[in-house]
Design a binder for these strands. Structure first.
Lengths: 370, 370
DNA sequence: GTGAAAGCGCTAACAG
DNA sequence: CTGTTAGCGCTTTCAC
């Protein structure tokens, strides 16, 4: 046995500390982990050796022995998106409160990358996962779940895409079917049953559209995210529900689904306004789309209501009426559910839905042009 | 030796796979790691066993054996702040490209939490760290650095705060000395020498203030973040440089440093405008402060230039002139430097400075009232 | 109170 | 091409 850490390369180990303090390995372990049953003087000697050597416990080795890693994985679409960064922060806070560290990864709406990240996290033996899924097929999760890794889906569910239930019909801008979400991602593995925390996408969108209808609009354009994304589908569904409830026809030429890029949005807006019977109001399906639409619309802008609140919505002129969801609540709820599961709560699978609320600020209360 | 995984609790191990496939442990290891020198048929048999058992390599054990964890830690102030979320995403992308995973933690400007997070990451034996420091004293890092963990500081440096070199004097709003950054955080440990990537805070602020001066302003208020924060100090320094270069006096009653909360900012703005000789223009020290100031200022707003670009700055009326820094560039540069270090590049400590640039949009070109 | 031995799941270094 | 042995740094079990 080597006497002092100097001899070794790399970090000092418990063995080094033990040798320096002149005690057995196990005693060091007891001190490091605050286990009872160590003589105060001995403990002090050990602490000095720890200080001297700059020893720090190797949690990797500890984990290997104990099983639990005290870390969770978080997969979102993009940390840089304010919606997900709020969610992230909430998850992180809950994790910290539960003594857990967080691995974060951005899928960028790519199911392959989502899968790779999840599996990488699982290989690190995270205790659990909070996933905002990019794809629908999570068969790859089955062995992990079977092995005891807990997962909670946030913002979007897993399972068969409801897409086919709500055909969007021809749109005034063609959706790109080439997005990464579109390929090879339908039911190729066993379905997984997991806890889910969503917000009321359809209800929120219906509320927003009904608000425009209440202010006299009868032709309302809908600008949505890629049709393959669950929330985009649900919000479109809400739009249709609101129209139907008001006895208004559904006109596919008023609907555009696709990537939330400025160029696409500008084109979609231009196309809509060029229609023979143009819309007098616009409902946008998420924060990015709202902002992009604002950049595209001629001034004075027509009436607009957006899904998602965003910073400065209140400072624009007119201020922007939005259907706000609660990304922090979403993250917190999902993470808390995860930690309850990890703590041993083994009830049936939960599906939680969070409410949205309309914030009237001006842009949604504009009347149609006379 | 147990024959099949069924007998065991938890996940199957290489041993289980070996038993199932009827080969030795090492052969499984070779297959799992794509090492050469395995008979195709044998490899296939192993792969089938892997599939059958749902085996997934335990990277924790692998790490224990190999030393490198293929993970890095990222400590920022708050993921939910757009500046840091952009930086995060950039770090994450570089890490992914280098086959590494990212632990993320938000310090919330609390040096204690920063320290706790860093040490937790180190206990997990991350290979390296990208740190946006909340405090100045990083003596606690010394043993980790000595043990071979590499660290790069981003956005802010370590070491003695330059605060005393640039006294702010009395301010029109009193800075809260109670912030977590203020306490017990000065030079209590050995100084550490680490790579640093900053942006040109002083130069950027000077450019912004000079821009206002060029448009005829002679009394310009400065609204900064907490005086203990490096970037806040540097930007104030730039403000003073610009005044000096223009032969304008420095008037402490025009300067307010403190937390970027709406209530404080509103009070600061009100106080400034209530002065006998009020400012005709405002320079704000970061994105949060700019937004809070916009909410506080009477309309029509006086001239304003903000440090940091922000979404929708171009959509306000007038659009907001800003000194833009590049959070993505900051994150990318820091992460790339870190991975170069991890790859063995052992040159002298680097201190990289990234440029800022002025984006004139209208608010900074307003003349003083006649 | 303290310690010795075994082993978590894997890879490195050698055999065969 | 395949297998055996040792041991990464720690915790667990049980003996002293």
């Amino acid at each position: 046995m080597r006497s002092v850490a100097e001899t070794r390369r790399g970090r000092p180990t418990m063995n080094d500390v033990a040798a320096t303090a002149g005690v057995a390995l196990k005693t060091v372990s007891r001190v490091v982990n605050d286990e009872p049953g160590v003589n105060a003087a001995t403990a002090e000697r050990v602490r000095q050796a720890i200080e001297l050597l700059g020893y720090r416990r190797n949690d990797g080795a500890r984990v290997l022995r104990r099983g639990r890693t005290a870390s969770i994985g978080l997969i979102i679409e993009d940390v840089a998106d304010p919606f997900y960064s709020g969610l992230s922060r909430a998850v992180e806070d809950v994790a910290l409160r539960n003594g857990s560290l967080v691995f974060t990864g951005s899928s960028g709406e790519d199911p392959q990358r989502e899968r790779a990240l999840v599996l990488a996290f699982c290989a690190r033996r995270v205790d659990g996962l909070v996933i905002v899924p990019a794809g629908y097929d999570h068969g790859y999760l089955a062995p992990e779940l079977a092995a005891g890794i807990r997962a909670v889906f946030a913002d979007r569910p897993t399972g068969p895409t409801p897409e086919t239930d709500h055909p969007t019909g021809p749109a005034f801008d063609i959706d790109r079917p080439t997005g990464p979400t579109a390929e090879a991602d339908r039911h190729t593995g066993p379905a997984v049953e997991v806890d889910t925390v969503l917000c009321d996408n359809a209800g929120g969108a219906a509320t927003g559209v009904a608000h425009l209808i209440a202010h006299g609009h009868r032709r309302i354009a809908f600008l949505g995210d890629q049709a393959a994304i669950f929330t985009a589908q649900e919000r479109l569904r809400g739009y249709r529900q609101a129209l139907e409830a008001a006895g208004l026809p559904y006109d596919p030429s008023l609907v555009s689904m696709g990537v939330p890029e400025q160029s696409r949005v500008s084109a979609a807006v231009a196309d809509a306004l060029a229609l023979g019977d143009p819309p007098t109001a616009l409902f946008t399906g998420n924060g990015q789309l709202t902002v992009a639409a604002l950049r595209s619309l001629p001034t004075p802008r027509p009436a607009i209501v957006g899904f998602d609140d965003f910073e400065l919505a209140d400072l624009l002129d007119p201020a922007i009426t939005v259907v706000a969801q609660d990304p922090i609540g979403l993250g917190r709820t999902a993470a808390e559910l995860l930690f309850r599961r990890l703590a041993g709560e083994n009830g049936p699978v939960e599906h939680i839905q969070l409410p949205t609320h309309l914030i009237p600020r001006g842009s949604g209360e504009l009347p149609p042009p006379a």
